[in-house]
């Protein structure tokens, strides 16, 4: 084995990944080549340093509170979405797309209703507790931002997968899916804008969260359909 060939095998040699047939000539070469011997020494020294690295680092103390806030809001949103209807929807692609459409319309309508209420002259009626901005509003929004990033990443990944696999779906199903997604996106935009104007409003946070969840859910279920087709 030449020096150049051996040099390319030194990482695997130190990691113990070489077969016996390959290891013996490398070992022989190291015995006579100072450059390769020095490189092996360096790699072994590095491996020792890596093994000594701490495996645990204490995270910031406030990290759990934000996770808990997202989890608890999840539970509230979960209660508002009927599990029974979502399990029924799994069976039918068209029902699935229609469900996305329905959720988007309801969410969009809810946002529109909310905006109209805000635009109307004030009346002496106490707002619902959930819709009232509270001192924890900033924390609520901060926690939601983490979740929003999460949804955006997941939706982008699923959309990529779906784009590659959409050939297996009927054209009318793809068209209906795209239509539903457009409506959900409009509802997300509408709720996002409303939230920007009223960042402490938990009702809007939950509405927006529900829109994101349904977008991801619609994409995920459609992706699963393409895989099972």
């Amino acid at each position: 084995m030449t020096h150049e060939v051996v040099r390319h095998l030194l990482d695997d040699y130190v990691a113990g990944d070489l077969t016996e047939d390959a290891r013996v000539p490398v070992l022989d070469h190291i015995g006579v080549c100072a450059i390769c011997r020095s490189e092996v020494d360096d790699l072994e020294k590095l491996a020792v340093q890596v093994a000594a690295l701490p495996r645990a680092v204490e995270p910031p103390v406030q990290a759990w509170a934000e996770i808990r806030s997202v989890i608890e809001r999840d539970a509230r949103v979960e209660r508002t979405v009927s599990r029974r209807s979502s399990s029924r929807l799994r069976a039918q692609p068209y029902a699935l797309a229609a469900a996305g459409l329905l959720v988007a319309l309801v969410s969009s309508g809810g946002t529109a209703l909310y905006l109209r209420e805000r635009a109307a002259p004030s009346v002496a009626v106490a707002p619902p507790a959930a819709a009232t901005a509270d001192p924890a509003g900033a924390a609520t929004l901060a926690a939601f931002t983490i979740e929003e990033n999460n949804y955006l990443r997941e939706a982008a990944t699923l959309a990529d997968v779906l784009e590659k696999q959409q050939g297996v779906l009927a054209p009318e199903t793809v068209a209906q899916l795209k239509k539903s997604l457009r409506i959900i996106d409009d509802a997300i935009l509408e709720a996002r804008n409303a939230l920007a104007r009223d960042p402490g409003n938990r009702t809007l946070v939950e509405m927006l969260s529900a829109n994101y969840r349904h977008k991801v859910d619609l994409l995920r279920r459609t992706t699963e359909m393409t895989r099972s087709s």
């Binding site: 495996r55 645990a56 680092v57 995270p59 910031p60 990290a63 996770i67 989890i71 983490i146």
Partner: peptide, 24 residues
């Protein structure tokens, strides 16, 4: 968190967000 910190090049804020994503 240690894993997140190393993957995020020691950026504590990004590592914290990533760890939170993981636990959520």
């Amino acid at each position: 968190y240690a894993l997140c910190l190393r993957l995020m090049a020691g950026d504590a804020q990004s590592a914290t967000e990533l760890m939170q994503d993981v636990f959520i």
